[in-house]
Amino acid sequence: MYEIRIHSRGGQGGVTAARLLALAAFRDGKHATACPFYGAERRGAPVVSFVRIDDAPIKIYSQIHNPDMVVVLDASVMETVDVLQGLKEGGKVLVNSEHPQEFPGYTSYHVDLTGIALAQDLAIAGTPIVNTPFLGAAAKLGIVSFESVTQAIREMFADERNVKVAEAAYKELVI
């Protein structure tokens, strides 16, 4: 089982990112569950959501305490939240950032999801959409296939720019 924890801020689409990723994994023929951790969070507060992907049906409903991978959709949450908490040894960290991030003991990746979204003018009420570009990055990291990513995005969104930003993130992420 592959377990992913996504950190974001309320209103940024972190829950949708989890749902998109689960849907893409599901389109790959895998079993997948996506669950938000709903707290008393409000728009702008740090939030987490979870994705599990496996070849067998998934019976676990509790939160992910030891993820294989951590995704940070808003780098500013790292100022107040220990995003590495419980991350497995040698686990992956993907940060939405223009700049490389160093996490000793872990494999880190960065890609400017916000910049990619803004280049396509993809924003809701001024908030750049980072979850659909994130799906492109997830495909580049081999978590899901890029074909399933585009399929999942088209199932959930009519705006074709969402596919374009996924393509851009796929190209830009260096692995």
Binding site: A18, R19, A22, L23, F26, H31, A32, T33, A34, C35, P36, Y38, I58, Y61
Partner: peptide
């Protein structure tokens, strides 16, 4: 059905 744990989880 369990609130959030099942109501809001995505499964097949």
């Amino acid at each position: 059905l369990d609130g959030f744990t099942l109501s809001h989880i995505m499964q097949s």
